[in-house]
Design a protein around this nucleic acid. Structure first.
Lengths: 299, 299
DNA sequence: GCTCGCTAGTCGTTTTTGGCATACCCCAAT
DNA sequence: ATTGGGGTATGCCAAAAACGACTAGCGAGC
């Protein structure tokens, strides 16, 4: 009406979400395919535009301010709208069904995406769109979801992938600093790294090992589970992690799990989709591939 | 997860909406404060990105394709999300209440915005955010609306601005081409320019002049009312327009209304707001100014 | 044919973006 | 106290993007 309104750019919005999720500009840089410097500049530009800091810079990482939280929510809406538009258009085209898959960030980062290039090579004609978050305003329903569940709901179909095998892990240096505890009791001297909204908590480990009321010395909580793993790798404490997500780190010694301390969770990663929908050929092929890959986890 | 996704820029989205509303890149250029060339390039860039034409280029202007319609809808969601974020943040700040006003594009363009600089000068401390469209996903409720109504709903408060006085107008050249009709019957030889979703249609004119069943030779329909006025100015036909919106064009002779042909509509522009909400000082001052301005229309 | 309104393209200029390198900060370990 | 590691922000520079002025070409109307 009277000139363009100045809004944050799409890159800035993606930066905002990634920094919120990863906890630092340097950690956000990789999934954005940007340098830390570019991420920092985008964030500062956004903060100039919106009139204040989106994050508090703390020793524990970037913590969203109230202002930041407002913009994060609306950034999700805007980004999801663009994702939905692209998906809706892709779904109108003839040819193989475009797949939209809703995937938790950590599962995508650590397990699916590193393997996904194989699927792409085998099926270059199949377009897959990943999305890592849900928005209240989304208009396009995903074809499939990966979720960490006990079991799928009655109105969906699901197959178990992996995830029951939960390991208590830390960096080798941290474990050594704890005096190389050989039991859960001994490990209780450590700092537990947790994400409140995942089902990986110290009391489950305690219970599963036939102990009662054993408290861990300290618990440090993070807003995203990806940050839990980063903190464990950085030697800040111990974390409970599905073994399948950290196979490489365990093999490389970046994380250790002496004595195989851990427990068997009733939760696991499941691939779910709405029931009673005939699967497209694209979906059939993807599921076939996904299950073959998951069967190699052996948990 | 694997790099930034490439989405249309905020400028491109605003261009998409403006071209859809105005019907051409040249008409969209002014409210965007861009040149026609820049608008064209943004549109072509967007079309490259989304994989096809957003508009069909027709002699009657740009007509949205199916692809374009999908993106228009989602562009509204994204833009509105950004507007809502900015408004929500502004509403958290101390100081005068930020006003969000929902205004039809044509009312804003032709009447409110040209006058609004006066309000701004008188009250520089009051921030007003205009929005021209509604989105299903919006989260922030406007403080006030301008709408073309018979009367406000029971759950709102409203004051009449102007708009009952509807005039049959055209460019002088067009009226001359029709043989300078002095009556509604004679004018029926012409082409009627209409927007289906406004209450300004030829049969109302006929009825209000005590005639029955008199058909106009041809009706040309446009997707937006702003395009109706542009077509009338361009000599493409006759239009029924609230007199208050075209005072300057009538005075300058760019539009003519010989013999004062027209009718009195039961619809008019009303300024409405939710009832039972104590008005802020900002709103009180705005309403005061708005009513003073509207009283000068004298219809 | 001419005029007008329109779209899209070229060219030159300006602005923006992103990476490299680096200064600075904080914390933990030695 | 020093060192190392992880982090943020900034300067410099090159590349990319954005924009306006100008213009070619098209279609419609006269």
């Amino acid at each position: 009406m009277s000139g363009r309104k100045q809004f944050p750019s799409m890159t800035a919005l993606q930066v905002l979400l990634a920094v919120g999720e990863r906890g630092s500009t340097s950690a956000a840089a990789e999934p954005l395919a940007l340098s830390q410097s570019a991420v920092s500049k985008q964030l500062i530009g956004l903060e100039d535009l919106i009139g204040g800091p989106a994050f508090q810079r703390t020793p524990n990482g970037m913590v969203p301010t109230e202002l930041g939280a407002i913009y994060i929510e609306h950034a999700r809406t805007a980004i999801k709208a663009m994702e939905d538009a692209a998906l809706k258009v892709a779904r109108l085209k003839p040819g193989p069904r475009v797949l939209r898959l809703q995937v938790p960030p950590i599962f995508g980062d650590r397990w699916l995406l590193p393997r996904f290039v194989q699927f792409t090579e085998a099926h270059p004609e199949i377009e897959v769109q990943f999305t890592t978050f849900v928005s209240k305003t989304q208009t396009e329903i995903p074809d499939g979801n990966v979720r960490f569940l006990v079991a799928p709901a009655p109105d969906e179909e699901g197959t178990y992938l992996f995830g029951n095998d939960i390991r208590l892990v830390s960096a080798a240096s941290y474990w050594e600093k704890l005096g190389n505890p050989a039991t859960v009791e001994a490990a209780a001297r450590g700092v537990m790294l947790e994400h409140p909204q995942t089902p990986f908590h110290w009391p489950f480990l305690v219970q599963a090992n036939g102990l009662h009321g054993l408290e861990v010395r300290h618990t440090m909580r993070f807003g995203y589970y990806t940050m839990v793993i980063r903190a464990a790798l950085a030697g800040q404490g111990m974390a409970l992690i599905p073994q399948g997500l950290i196979v490489d780190e365990l093999a490389a010694g970046r994380l250790v799990n002496p004595k195989g301390l851990g427990y068997r969770s009733d939760h696991g990663y499941w691939f779910t989709k709405p029931a009673n929908i005939p699967p497209s050929e694209s979906m059939r092929l993807f599921e076939q591939w996904l299950h073959a890959e998951a069967s190699m986890v052996k948990d």
